[in-house]
Design a protein around this nucleic acid. Sequence first.
RNA 1: GCGCCCAUAGCUCAAUUGGAUAGAGCAACAGCCUUCUAAGCUGUAGGUUAGUGGUUCGAGUCCACUUGGGCGUACCA
Length: 542
Amino acid sequence: MKEYLISIFNKAAGKLPYLQSVSLNFENPKIELHGDLSCNAAILLAKQLKKKPRDIAQEIINTLETDPNIISKIEIAGPGFINFFFEPAFVAQIIKSILKGQESFGRSDAFKGKKANVEFVSANPTGPLTVGHGRNAVCGDTIANLLEWVGYKVDREYYFNNAGRQMRVLGDSVKLRYLELLGEKISFPEDYYQGDYIKDIAKNLVNEYGDKLKDEQPEGIFKQRAEKEIFNDIKKTLSSLNIIHNIFYNENSLYEEGRIKRLLEIYKEKNLSFEKDGATWLKLTQLGSEQDKVIVKSSGEPTYRLPDIAYHITKFERGYDLMVDLFGSDHNATYPDVSAGLKALGYDSNKIKVLIHQFVTIMENGEAVKMSTRKANFITLDQLISEVGSDVVRYFFNMRNITTHMNFDLSLAKKQSDENPVFYLQYAHARICSILKMVEKENLKASQENLDLLTSNEEQQLLKKLHQFRDEVFLSALFFETHRICTYLEELAAAFHKFYTFCRILGSEKKLAEARIALAEAAKIVIKNGLTILGVNAPERM
RNA sequence: GCGCCCAUAGCUCAAUUGGAUAGAGCAACAGCCUUCUAAGCUGUAGGUUAGUGGUUCGAGUCCACUUGGGCGUACCA
Protein backbone atom coordinates (compact mmCIF):
# COMPACT_ATOMS: atom_id res chain seq x y z
CA MET A 1 0.00 0.00 0.00
CA LYS A 2 2.72 2.40 1.04
CA GLU A 3 4.79 1.56 -2.03
CA TYR A 4 1.86 2.46 -4.23
CA LEU A 5 1.39 5.86 -2.58
CA ILE A 6 5.08 6.62 -2.85
CA SER A 7 5.00 5.82 -6.54
CA ILE A 8 2.02 8.04 -7.34
CA PHE A 9 3.43 10.87 -5.19
CA ASN A 10 6.72 10.67 -7.06
CA LYS A 11 4.80 10.93 -10.28
CA ALA A 12 2.87 13.96 -9.01
CA ALA A 13 6.08 15.62 -7.91
CA GLY A 14 6.78 16.28 -11.57
CA LYS A 15 3.83 18.66 -11.66
CA LEU A 16 4.07 19.91 -8.09
CA PRO A 17 7.78 20.54 -7.48
CA TYR A 18 7.19 21.51 -3.83
CA LEU A 19 6.46 17.87 -3.08
CA GLN A 20 10.16 17.22 -3.46
CA SER A 21 11.01 19.62 -0.65
CA VAL A 22 9.12 17.68 2.00
CA SER A 23 9.85 14.24 3.43
CA LEU A 24 6.87 12.11 2.60
CA ASN A 25 5.47 10.43 5.64
CA PHE A 26 2.66 7.88 5.46
CA GLU A 27 1.23 6.75 8.73
CA ASN A 28 -1.18 4.07 9.82
CA PRO A 29 -3.90 6.05 11.57
CA LYS A 30 -5.07 4.80 14.92
CA ILE A 31 -8.71 5.27 14.04
CA GLU A 32 -10.40 3.45 11.18
CA LEU A 33 -12.28 6.61 10.29
CA HIS A 34 -8.98 8.18 9.25
CA GLY A 35 -8.36 5.69 6.50
CA ASP A 36 -5.69 3.10 5.85
CA LEU A 37 -2.77 5.46 5.35
CA SER A 38 -2.48 9.11 6.13
CA CYS A 39 -0.15 11.81 4.81
CA ASN A 40 0.71 15.04 6.59
CA ALA A 41 2.69 16.65 3.74
CA ALA A 42 0.17 19.45 3.20
CA ILE A 43 0.47 20.57 6.84
CA LEU A 44 4.24 20.52 6.72
CA LEU A 45 4.24 22.57 3.51
CA ALA A 46 1.78 25.19 4.72
CA LYS A 47 4.34 27.53 6.24
CA GLN A 48 6.77 27.30 3.36
CA LEU A 49 4.09 27.91 0.72
CA LYS A 50 2.15 30.42 2.81
CA LYS A 51 -1.09 28.70 1.93
CA LYS A 52 -3.78 26.98 3.93
CA PRO A 53 -2.89 23.31 4.47
CA ARG A 54 -6.32 22.13 3.34
CA ASP A 55 -5.92 24.03 0.07
CA ILE A 56 -2.53 22.42 -0.51
CA ALA A 57 -4.04 19.04 0.28
CA GLN A 58 -6.73 19.61 -2.32
CA GLU A 59 -4.11 20.61 -4.87
CA ILE A 60 -2.11 17.45 -4.17
CA ILE A 61 -5.20 15.27 -4.48
CA ASN A 62 -6.12 16.90 -7.79
CA THR A 63 -2.67 16.12 -9.13
CA LEU A 64 -2.44 12.50 -7.97
CA GLU A 65 -3.32 9.98 -10.64
CA THR A 66 -4.99 7.22 -8.69
CA ASP A 67 -6.28 3.89 -9.91
CA PRO A 68 -9.87 3.43 -8.70
CA ASN A 69 -9.21 -0.31 -8.48
CA ILE A 70 -6.62 0.42 -5.83
CA ILE A 71 -7.77 3.52 -3.98
CA SER A 72 -11.43 3.77 -3.14
CA LYS A 73 -11.50 7.14 -1.42
CA ILE A 74 -9.32 10.10 -0.54
CA GLU A 75 -10.32 12.58 2.15
CA ILE A 76 -8.96 15.77 3.62
CA ALA A 77 -9.39 15.75 7.36
CA GLY A 78 -8.54 17.70 10.47
CA PRO A 79 -5.88 20.36 10.01
CA GLY A 80 -5.00 19.03 6.54
CA PHE A 81 -4.26 15.33 6.65
CA ILE A 82 -4.81 13.46 3.43
CA ASN A 83 -6.40 10.11 4.23
CA PHE A 84 -6.30 7.24 1.77
CA PHE A 85 -8.73 4.34 1.72
CA PHE A 86 -7.77 1.22 -0.20
CA GLU A 87 -9.86 -1.27 -2.12
CA PRO A 88 -10.18 -4.58 -0.22
CA ALA A 89 -9.23 -6.56 -3.32
CA PHE A 90 -5.96 -4.64 -3.57
CA VAL A 91 -5.23 -5.03 0.14
CA ALA A 92 -5.52 -8.80 -0.27
CA GLN A 93 -2.77 -8.87 -2.88
CA ILE A 94 -0.13 -8.80 -0.11
CA ILE A 95 -0.74 -12.53 0.27
CA LYS A 96 0.95 -13.13 -3.08
CA SER A 97 4.17 -11.39 -2.02
CA ILE A 98 4.25 -13.22 1.29
CA LEU A 99 3.71 -16.67 -0.20
CA LYS A 100 6.34 -15.88 -2.80
CA GLY A 101 8.85 -14.56 -0.29
CA GLN A 102 8.30 -17.26 2.34
CA GLU A 103 11.02 -17.19 5.02
CA SER A 104 12.61 -14.19 3.31
CA PHE A 105 9.50 -12.05 3.37
CA GLY A 106 10.28 -8.88 5.32
CA ARG A 107 13.94 -8.81 4.38
CA SER A 108 15.23 -5.89 2.39
CA ASP A 109 18.47 -5.05 0.67
CA ALA A 110 18.55 -1.44 1.87
CA PHE A 111 22.05 -1.94 3.28
CA LYS A 112 23.25 -4.57 0.87
CA GLY A 113 27.02 -4.72 0.59
CA LYS A 114 27.53 -3.00 3.99
CA LYS A 115 29.39 -4.60 6.86
CA ALA A 116 28.32 -4.20 10.48
CA ASN A 117 29.91 -5.21 13.74
CA VAL A 118 27.79 -5.70 16.83
CA GLU A 119 29.77 -5.91 20.03
CA PHE A 120 27.80 -7.21 22.97
CA VAL A 121 27.99 -9.15 26.24
CA SER A 122 31.76 -8.52 26.50
CA ALA A 123 31.76 -9.59 30.15
CA ASN A 124 35.16 -10.47 31.52
CA PRO A 125 35.48 -14.12 32.55
CA THR A 126 35.32 -13.54 36.31
CA GLY A 127 32.01 -15.26 36.95
CA PRO A 128 28.84 -16.65 35.39
CA LEU A 129 26.55 -14.39 33.39
CA THR A 130 23.83 -12.80 35.45
CA VAL A 131 20.30 -11.80 34.58
CA GLY A 132 21.69 -8.32 33.95
CA HIS A 133 23.97 -9.67 31.23
CA GLY A 134 20.95 -11.43 29.78
CA ARG A 135 19.41 -8.20 28.62
CA ASN A 136 22.63 -7.20 26.88
CA ALA A 137 23.05 -10.63 25.30
CA VAL A 138 19.52 -10.95 23.98
CA CYS A 139 19.17 -7.40 22.70
CA GLY A 140 22.61 -7.49 21.09
CA ASP A 141 21.90 -10.70 19.23
CA THR A 142 18.48 -9.50 18.12
CA ILE A 143 19.89 -6.20 16.87
CA ALA A 144 22.41 -8.23 14.89
CA ASN A 145 19.52 -10.24 13.43
CA LEU A 146 17.67 -7.06 12.51
CA LEU A 147 20.71 -5.65 10.74
CA GLU A 148 20.99 -8.86 8.75
CA TRP A 149 17.35 -8.53 7.74
CA VAL A 150 17.99 -5.14 6.17
CA GLY A 151 20.99 -6.35 4.23
CA TYR A 152 24.06 -5.95 6.43
CA LYS A 153 26.70 -8.60 6.67
CA VAL A 154 27.07 -8.81 10.44
CA ASP A 155 29.84 -9.92 12.78
CA ARG A 156 28.91 -10.66 16.38
CA GLU A 157 31.84 -9.76 18.56
CA TYR A 158 32.79 -10.36 22.20
CA TYR A 159 35.55 -8.19 23.62
CA PHE A 160 37.24 -9.41 26.77
CA ASN A 161 40.14 -8.76 29.05
CA ASN A 162 41.99 -11.60 30.72
CA ALA A 163 44.72 -9.47 32.24
CA GLY A 164 44.24 -6.68 34.76
CA ARG A 165 43.29 -6.44 38.38
CA GLN A 166 39.95 -8.27 38.26
CA MET A 167 41.62 -11.33 36.82
CA ARG A 168 44.44 -11.23 39.37
CA VAL A 169 41.88 -11.24 42.16
CA LEU A 170 40.19 -14.16 40.44
CA GLY A 171 43.43 -16.18 40.45
CA ASP A 172 44.03 -15.30 44.08
CA SER A 173 40.50 -16.33 44.99
CA VAL A 174 40.86 -19.75 43.37
CA LYS A 175 44.23 -20.39 44.98
CA LEU A 176 42.88 -19.56 48.43
CA ARG A 177 39.94 -21.93 47.97
CA TYR A 178 42.36 -24.57 46.74
CA LEU A 179 44.49 -24.25 49.87
CA GLU A 180 41.35 -24.30 51.96
CA LEU A 181 40.32 -27.62 50.41
CA LEU A 182 43.75 -29.01 51.27
CA GLY A 183 42.96 -28.27 54.88
CA GLU A 184 44.94 -25.10 55.32
CA LYS A 185 43.53 -22.36 57.47
CA ILE A 186 42.90 -19.34 55.28
CA SER A 187 41.24 -16.00 55.70
CA PHE A 188 39.22 -15.13 52.63
CA PRO A 189 39.16 -11.37 52.00
CA GLU A 190 35.80 -9.74 51.59
CA ASP A 191 36.64 -8.19 48.25
CA TYR A 192 37.57 -11.53 46.68
CA TYR A 193 35.11 -13.51 44.56
CA GLN A 194 32.76 -15.16 47.02
CA GLY A 195 30.78 -17.38 44.66
CA ASP A 196 30.56 -21.15 44.93
CA TYR A 197 31.79 -21.50 41.36
CA ILE A 198 35.25 -20.54 42.66
CA LYS A 199 35.14 -23.51 45.03
CA ASP A 200 34.07 -25.77 42.17
CA ILE A 201 37.08 -24.73 40.12
CA ALA A 202 39.36 -25.30 43.09
CA LYS A 203 37.78 -28.69 43.65
CA ASN A 204 38.53 -29.70 40.08
CA LEU A 205 42.15 -28.73 40.58
CA VAL A 206 42.39 -30.78 43.78
CA ASN A 207 40.87 -33.77 42.01
CA GLU A 208 43.36 -33.55 39.18
CA TYR A 209 46.54 -32.43 40.87
CA GLY A 210 46.13 -33.18 44.56
CA ASP A 211 48.40 -30.88 46.53
CA LYS A 212 51.02 -30.50 43.79
CA LEU A 213 49.96 -26.92 43.04
CA LYS A 214 50.57 -25.64 46.56
CA ASP A 215 53.55 -23.57 45.52
CA GLU A 216 52.24 -22.40 42.16
CA GLN A 217 51.60 -18.69 41.67
CA PRO A 218 47.93 -17.58 41.63
CA GLU A 219 48.59 -15.88 38.29
CA GLY A 220 49.54 -19.19 36.71
CA ILE A 221 47.40 -22.26 36.53
CA PHE A 222 44.83 -20.95 39.00
CA LYS A 223 43.95 -17.94 36.95
CA GLN A 224 44.20 -19.78 33.63
CA ARG A 225 42.03 -22.62 34.77
CA ALA A 226 39.43 -20.26 36.21
CA GLU A 227 39.31 -18.26 32.99
CA LYS A 228 38.90 -21.38 30.89
CA GLU A 229 36.13 -22.92 32.96
CA ILE A 230 34.25 -19.67 33.39
CA PHE A 231 34.49 -18.84 29.71
CA ASN A 232 33.19 -22.27 28.79
CA ASP A 233 30.23 -21.73 31.07
CA ILE A 234 29.55 -18.32 29.59
CA LYS A 235 29.58 -19.73 26.06
CA LYS A 236 27.32 -22.57 27.11
CA THR A 237 24.85 -20.14 28.64
CA LEU A 238 24.86 -18.00 25.52
CA SER A 239 24.42 -20.95 23.22
CA SER A 240 21.38 -22.08 25.19
CA LEU A 241 19.89 -18.75 24.11
CA ASN A 242 21.10 -19.50 20.60
CA ILE A 243 23.66 -16.73 20.76
CA ILE A 244 26.93 -17.41 19.03
CA HIS A 245 29.65 -14.81 18.68
CA ASN A 246 31.83 -15.36 15.64
CA ILE A 247 34.64 -13.15 16.93
CA PHE A 248 36.22 -13.14 20.38
CA TYR A 249 38.60 -10.23 20.67
CA ASN A 250 41.16 -10.40 23.46
CA GLU A 251 42.27 -7.04 24.76
CA ASN A 252 45.70 -8.53 25.32
CA SER A 253 46.32 -8.87 21.59
CA LEU A 254 46.30 -5.09 21.36
CA TYR A 255 49.47 -5.11 23.48
CA GLU A 256 51.00 -8.10 21.70
CA GLU A 257 50.58 -6.45 18.32
CA GLY A 258 52.15 -3.24 19.62
CA ARG A 259 48.97 -1.26 18.99
CA ILE A 260 48.94 0.34 22.42
CA LYS A 261 52.50 1.50 22.07
CA ARG A 262 51.91 2.85 18.60
CA LEU A 263 48.76 4.68 19.62
CA LEU A 264 50.62 6.39 22.46
CA GLU A 265 53.30 7.51 20.03
CA ILE A 266 50.73 8.92 17.64
CA TYR A 267 49.06 10.95 20.39
CA LYS A 268 52.46 12.26 21.42
CA GLU A 269 53.42 13.15 17.84
CA LYS A 270 50.15 14.99 17.31
CA ASN A 271 50.68 16.79 20.59
CA LEU A 272 47.42 15.41 21.94
CA SER A 273 48.92 14.00 25.12
CA PHE A 274 51.08 15.33 27.94
CA GLU A 275 52.85 14.13 31.08
CA LYS A 276 51.77 15.20 34.54
CA ASP A 277 52.37 13.67 38.00
CA GLY A 278 54.12 10.73 36.37
CA ALA A 279 51.06 9.82 34.28
CA THR A 280 50.19 10.38 30.63
CA TRP A 281 47.08 12.43 29.95
CA LEU A 282 44.95 12.86 26.87
CA LYS A 283 44.13 16.50 26.05
CA LEU A 284 40.41 15.95 26.04
CA THR A 285 39.60 19.55 26.96
CA GLN A 286 41.11 20.50 23.65
CA LEU A 287 38.70 18.05 22.00
CA GLY A 288 35.64 19.51 23.62
CA SER A 289 35.38 17.47 26.83
CA GLU A 290 35.07 18.80 30.35
CA GLN A 291 38.39 17.55 31.61
CA ASP A 292 41.58 15.83 30.58
CA LYS A 293 41.82 12.14 31.38
CA VAL A 294 44.65 9.77 32.25
CA ILE A 295 45.52 7.21 29.60
CA VAL A 296 48.64 5.76 31.26
CA LYS A 297 48.80 5.59 35.05
CA SER A 298 51.94 6.54 36.93
CA SER A 299 52.41 2.80 37.47
CA GLY A 300 52.94 2.50 33.72
CA GLU A 301 49.68 0.61 33.24
CA PRO A 302 47.23 2.06 30.70
CA THR A 303 43.70 2.90 31.80
CA TYR A 304 40.81 1.31 29.93
CA ARG A 305 40.55 4.31 27.58
CA LEU A 306 43.72 3.59 25.67
CA PRO A 307 42.97 -0.04 24.76
CA ASP A 308 39.34 0.90 24.08
CA ILE A 309 40.47 3.45 21.52
CA ALA A 310 43.01 1.06 20.01
CA TYR A 311 40.32 -1.60 19.86
CA HIS A 312 37.92 0.62 17.96
CA ILE A 313 40.69 1.51 15.56
CA THR A 314 40.95 -2.17 14.69
CA LYS A 315 37.25 -2.13 13.90
CA PHE A 316 37.77 0.79 11.52
CA GLU A 317 40.68 -1.08 9.97
CA ARG A 318 38.52 -4.14 9.55
CA GLY A 319 36.28 -2.06 7.29
CA TYR A 320 32.95 -1.88 9.08
CA ASP A 321 30.38 0.60 7.85
CA LEU A 322 28.54 0.39 11.14
CA MET A 323 29.82 -0.47 14.60
CA VAL A 324 27.30 -1.07 17.35
CA ASP A 325 28.44 -1.14 20.98
CA LEU A 326 25.89 -2.30 23.51
CA PHE A 327 26.65 -1.36 27.12
CA GLY A 328 24.89 -1.25 30.44
CA SER A 329 24.22 2.17 31.90
CA ASP A 330 27.21 1.82 34.24
CA HIS A 331 29.37 2.51 31.19
CA ASN A 332 27.57 5.64 30.16
CA ALA A 333 30.51 7.87 31.04
CA THR A 334 33.20 5.94 29.20
CA TYR A 335 32.17 6.36 25.62
CA PRO A 336 32.56 10.12 25.08
CA ASP A 337 36.29 9.89 25.89
CA VAL A 338 36.80 7.06 23.44
CA SER A 339 34.82 8.85 20.78
CA ALA A 340 36.80 12.06 21.24
CA GLY A 341 40.07 10.13 21.14
CA LEU A 342 39.06 8.55 17.84
CA LYS A 343 37.76 11.72 16.30
CA ALA A 344 41.06 13.46 17.08
CA LEU A 345 42.78 10.87 14.89
CA GLY A 346 40.43 11.50 12.01
CA TYR A 347 38.12 8.51 12.40
CA ASP A 348 34.46 9.01 11.61
CA SER A 349 32.88 8.31 14.98
CA ASN A 350 29.43 8.61 13.43
CA LYS A 351 29.91 5.06 12.24
CA ILE A 352 29.90 3.96 15.86
CA LYS A 353 26.50 3.62 17.45
CA VAL A 354 26.66 3.29 21.21
CA LEU A 355 23.54 1.83 22.76
CA ILE A 356 23.12 2.06 26.51
CA HIS A 357 20.58 -0.20 28.11
CA GLN A 358 19.24 0.51 31.58
CA PHE A 359 19.63 -1.95 34.41
CA VAL A 360 17.37 -4.80 35.23
CA THR A 361 16.06 -4.68 38.76
CA ILE A 362 15.33 -8.11 40.09
CA MET A 363 12.37 -8.20 42.41
CA GLU A 364 11.85 -11.14 44.68
CA ASN A 365 8.99 -11.24 47.17
CA GLY A 366 8.42 -7.56 46.58
CA GLU A 367 12.01 -6.56 47.29
CA ALA A 368 14.78 -5.44 44.97
CA VAL A 369 17.75 -7.80 44.95
CA LYS A 370 21.06 -5.96 44.72
CA MET A 371 23.45 -7.95 42.63
CA SER A 372 27.20 -8.09 42.48
CA THR A 373 29.47 -10.68 40.91
CA ARG A 374 32.03 -10.17 43.60
CA LYS A 375 29.57 -10.75 46.43
CA ALA A 376 27.95 -13.65 44.61
CA ASN A 377 24.41 -12.66 45.50
CA PHE A 378 23.47 -12.63 41.83
CA ILE A 379 20.88 -14.67 40.03
CA THR A 380 22.53 -16.36 37.10
CA LEU A 381 21.20 -16.27 33.59
CA ASP A 382 21.39 -20.07 33.61
CA GLN A 383 19.02 -20.28 36.55
CA LEU A 384 16.60 -17.99 34.81
CA ILE A 385 16.71 -19.98 31.57
CA SER A 386 16.14 -23.26 33.32
CA GLU A 387 13.20 -21.80 35.22
CA VAL A 388 11.30 -20.08 32.42
CA GLY A 389 12.92 -21.34 29.22
CA SER A 390 14.92 -19.72 26.49
CA ASP A 391 11.92 -18.43 24.51
CA VAL A 392 10.50 -16.55 27.47
CA VAL A 393 13.90 -15.09 28.37
CA ARG A 394 14.51 -13.88 24.84
CA TYR A 395 11.04 -12.48 24.44
CA PHE A 396 11.05 -10.83 27.83
CA PHE A 397 14.26 -8.90 27.23
CA ASN A 398 13.34 -8.03 23.66
CA MET A 399 9.86 -6.75 24.41
CA ARG A 400 10.95 -3.62 26.25
CA ASN A 401 12.71 -0.55 25.00
CA ILE A 402 16.29 -0.72 26.26
CA THR A 403 15.96 2.82 27.66
CA THR A 404 13.53 1.62 30.30
CA HIS A 405 14.57 0.61 33.79
CA MET A 406 13.13 -2.79 33.79
CA ASN A 407 11.59 -4.57 36.74
CA PHE A 408 11.87 -8.30 36.72
CA ASP A 409 9.65 -9.90 39.29
CA LEU A 410 11.14 -13.35 39.57
CA SER A 411 8.39 -14.93 41.62
CA LEU A 412 5.81 -13.54 39.22
CA ALA A 413 7.75 -14.65 36.15
CA LYS A 414 7.79 -18.24 37.37
CA LYS A 415 4.18 -18.25 38.48
CA GLN A 416 2.70 -16.53 35.46
CA SER A 417 4.90 -17.81 32.71
CA ASP A 418 1.73 -19.19 31.11
CA GLU A 419 0.44 -15.66 30.76
CA ASN A 420 3.52 -14.33 29.04
CA PRO A 421 2.70 -12.67 25.71
CA VAL A 422 5.19 -14.93 23.98
CA PHE A 423 2.72 -17.79 24.35
CA TYR A 424 0.05 -15.68 22.72
CA LEU A 425 2.23 -15.42 19.61
CA GLN A 426 3.34 -19.02 19.65
CA TYR A 427 -0.24 -20.13 20.13
CA ALA A 428 -1.32 -18.19 17.06
CA HIS A 429 1.38 -19.97 15.06
CA ALA A 430 0.46 -23.38 16.43
CA ARG A 431 -3.21 -22.75 15.69
CA ILE A 432 -2.43 -21.97 12.07
CA CYS A 433 -0.32 -25.09 11.70
CA SER A 434 -3.14 -27.11 13.15
CA ILE A 435 -5.78 -25.73 10.82
CA LEU A 436 -3.53 -26.18 7.81
CA LYS A 437 -3.18 -29.85 8.68
CA MET A 438 -6.91 -30.09 9.09
CA VAL A 439 -7.76 -28.60 5.70
CA GLU A 440 -5.30 -30.90 4.02
CA LYS A 441 -7.36 -33.83 5.23
CA GLU A 442 -10.42 -32.19 3.66
CA ASN A 443 -8.55 -31.93 0.34
CA LEU A 444 -8.57 -28.17 0.48
CA LYS A 445 -5.63 -26.10 -0.70
CA ALA A 446 -4.62 -22.47 -0.58
CA SER A 447 -5.56 -20.58 -3.70
CA GLN A 448 -4.60 -17.09 -4.82
CA GLU A 449 -7.34 -16.99 -7.43
CA ASN A 450 -10.10 -15.38 -5.41
CA LEU A 451 -8.36 -13.19 -2.88
CA ASP A 452 -10.93 -10.47 -3.60
CA LEU A 453 -13.37 -12.48 -1.49
CA LEU A 454 -11.45 -11.51 1.64
CA THR A 455 -13.54 -8.44 2.39
CA SER A 456 -14.75 -8.91 5.95
CA ASN A 457 -13.53 -6.61 8.68
CA GLU A 458 -11.43 -9.30 10.37
CA GLU A 459 -9.82 -10.37 7.10
CA GLN A 460 -9.02 -6.81 6.10
CA GLN A 461 -7.59 -5.94 9.51
CA LEU A 462 -5.30 -8.95 9.36
CA LEU A 463 -4.24 -8.17 5.79
CA LYS A 464 -3.41 -4.57 6.65
CA LYS A 465 -1.31 -5.74 9.55
CA LEU A 466 0.60 -8.02 7.19
CA HIS A 467 1.28 -5.03 4.94
CA GLN A 468 3.19 -3.37 7.80
CA PHE A 469 5.72 -6.10 8.48
CA ARG A 470 8.49 -5.09 6.12
CA ASP A 471 8.31 -1.50 7.36
CA GLU A 472 8.43 -2.59 10.99
CA VAL A 473 11.55 -4.64 10.37
CA PHE A 474 13.19 -1.76 8.58
CA LEU A 475 12.38 0.82 11.24
CA SER A 476 13.34 -1.54 14.08
CA ALA A 477 16.74 -2.01 12.47
CA LEU A 478 17.14 1.68 11.76
CA PHE A 479 16.44 2.64 15.37
CA PHE A 480 17.99 -0.50 16.91
CA GLU A 481 14.69 -1.14 18.69
CA THR A 482 13.88 -4.80 19.18
CA HIS A 483 10.69 -4.14 21.15
CA ARG A 484 8.93 -2.78 18.09
CA ILE A 485 8.89 -6.26 16.62
CA CYS A 486 7.25 -7.60 19.77
CA THR A 487 4.59 -4.92 19.77
CA TYR A 488 3.91 -5.55 16.11
CA LEU A 489 3.68 -9.32 16.52
CA GLU A 490 1.25 -8.98 19.41
CA GLU A 491 -0.99 -6.84 17.21
CA LEU A 492 -0.63 -9.28 14.34
CA ALA A 493 -1.45 -12.26 16.56
CA ALA A 494 -4.48 -10.43 17.92
CA ALA A 495 -5.67 -9.76 14.36
CA PHE A 496 -5.19 -13.42 13.53
CA HIS A 497 -7.04 -14.69 16.61
CA LYS A 498 -9.98 -12.48 15.68
CA PHE A 499 -9.93 -13.73 12.11
CA TYR A 500 -9.79 -17.28 13.43
CA THR A 501 -12.77 -16.69 15.69
CA PHE A 502 -15.03 -15.03 13.12
CA CYS A 503 -13.93 -16.37 9.73
CA ARG A 504 -14.17 -20.10 9.58
CA ILE A 505 -12.46 -22.07 6.90
CA LEU A 506 -14.11 -25.46 7.17
CA GLY A 507 -17.72 -25.12 6.18
CA SER A 508 -17.25 -22.02 4.07
CA GLU A 509 -17.90 -21.95 0.36
CA LYS A 510 -14.93 -23.54 -1.42
CA LYS A 511 -13.48 -20.45 -3.14
CA LEU A 512 -13.71 -18.43 0.04
CA ALA A 513 -12.20 -21.26 2.08
CA GLU A 514 -9.24 -21.49 -0.30
CA ALA A 515 -8.61 -17.77 -0.13
CA ARG A 516 -8.77 -17.92 3.67
CA ILE A 517 -6.26 -20.75 3.71
CA ALA A 518 -3.91 -18.56 1.69
CA LEU A 519 -4.41 -15.79 4.23
CA ALA A 520 -3.73 -18.16 7.13
CA GLU A 521 -0.53 -19.35 5.46
CA ALA A 522 0.59 -15.79 4.93
CA ALA A 523 -0.05 -14.97 8.59
CA LYS A 524 1.89 -18.05 9.62
CA ILE A 525 4.90 -17.00 7.56
CA VAL A 526 4.96 -13.49 8.97
CA ILE A 527 4.56 -14.62 12.59
CA LYS A 528 7.33 -17.13 12.11
CA ASN A 529 9.63 -14.60 10.45
CA GLY A 530 9.04 -12.13 13.25
CA LEU A 531 9.77 -14.74 15.91
CA THR A 532 12.89 -15.76 14.00
CA ILE A 533 14.21 -12.21 14.21
CA LEU A 534 13.61 -12.28 17.96
CA GLY A 535 15.29 -15.68 18.24
CA VAL A 536 12.11 -17.26 19.58
CA ASN A 537 10.81 -20.64 18.40
CA ALA A 538 7.59 -20.95 16.43
CA PRO A 539 6.13 -24.27 17.61
CA GLU A 540 3.82 -26.27 15.33
CA ARG A 541 1.74 -27.43 18.26
CA MET A 542 1.27 -26.46 21.87
C1' G B 1 27.57 19.56 43.27
C1' C B 2 27.99 18.05 37.93
C1' G B 3 26.87 14.54 33.61
C1' C B 4 23.78 10.68 31.19
C1' C B 5 19.09 7.92 31.56
C1' C B 6 14.09 7.50 33.44
C1' A B 7 8.83 8.92 35.45
C1' U B 8 2.28 7.14 31.12
C1' A B 9 -4.21 2.89 34.00
C1' G B 10 -3.68 -0.82 40.52
C1' C B 11 1.07 -3.70 38.18
C1' U B 12 4.46 -4.45 33.68
C1' C B 13 4.96 -1.67 29.40
C1' A B 14 3.41 0.65 24.08
C1' A B 15 2.38 5.04 21.48
C1' U B 16 4.67 4.93 13.73
C1' U B 17 10.62 9.62 16.45
C1' G B 18 6.00 16.32 16.80
C1' G B 19 0.13 14.07 14.47
C1' A B 20 -6.09 13.48 14.81
C1' U B 21 -10.19 10.70 20.43
C1' A B 22 -2.95 8.14 24.78
C1' G B 23 -3.26 1.96 23.68
C1' A B 24 -1.96 -3.47 24.97
C1' G B 25 -1.04 -7.47 28.53
C1' C B 26 -1.68 -8.81 33.65
C1' A B 27 -4.97 -8.10 37.81
C1' A B 28 -10.85 -6.98 38.56
C1' C B 29 -15.92 -7.58 36.84
C1' A B 30 -19.79 -9.67 33.07
C1' G B 31 -20.45 -13.01 28.95
C1' C B 32 -18.89 -16.97 24.74
C1' C B 33 -16.80 -24.04 23.85
C1' U B 34 -22.03 -30.68 20.70
C1' U B 35 -18.65 -27.09 14.98
C1' C B 36 -10.80 -25.65 12.36
C1' U B 37 -6.53 -25.78 19.72
C1' A B 38 -10.77 -21.48 25.34
C1' A B 39 -2.73 -20.62 25.94
C1' G B 40 -8.64 -17.91 22.39
C1' C B 41 -12.84 -14.25 21.58
C1' U B 42 -16.63 -10.28 23.15
C1' G B 43 -17.92 -6.49 26.64
C1' U B 44 -17.34 -3.26 31.38
C1' A B 45 -14.25 -0.52 34.50
C1' G B 46 -9.62 1.84 35.09
C1' G B 47 -5.70 8.46 33.03
C1' U B 48 -4.91 16.09 34.98
C1' U B 49 1.00 11.18 30.69
C1' A B 50 5.10 13.33 38.25
C1' G B 51 4.38 19.13 38.62
C1' U B 52 4.67 24.27 36.59
C1' G B 53 5.57 27.31 32.56
C1' G B 54 7.14 27.80 27.32
C1' U B 55 7.79 26.69 21.76
C1' U B 56 3.34 25.87 17.26
C1' C B 57 -1.66 24.58 13.30
C1' G B 58 -0.79 20.29 17.01
C1' A B 59 3.19 18.19 22.84
C1' G B 60 3.25 11.90 26.43
C1' U B 61 7.14 13.20 22.76
C1' C B 62 10.90 19.35 21.95
C1' C B 63 12.88 23.60 25.64
C1' A B 64 13.33 25.67 30.87
C1' C B 65 12.61 24.98 35.91
C1' U B 66 10.77 21.81 40.09
C1' U B 67 9.99 16.92 42.47
C1' G B 68 11.25 11.80 42.79
C1' G B 69 14.35 7.45 41.16
C1' G B 70 18.66 4.67 38.37
C1' C B 71 23.79 4.90 36.73
C1' G B 72 28.11 7.47 36.53
C1' U B 73 31.33 11.37 38.12
C1' A B 74 39.02 7.22 39.41
C1' C B 75 45.88 7.13 37.93
C1' C B 76 38.72 0.48 38.27
C1' A B 77 36.57 -1.73 33.59
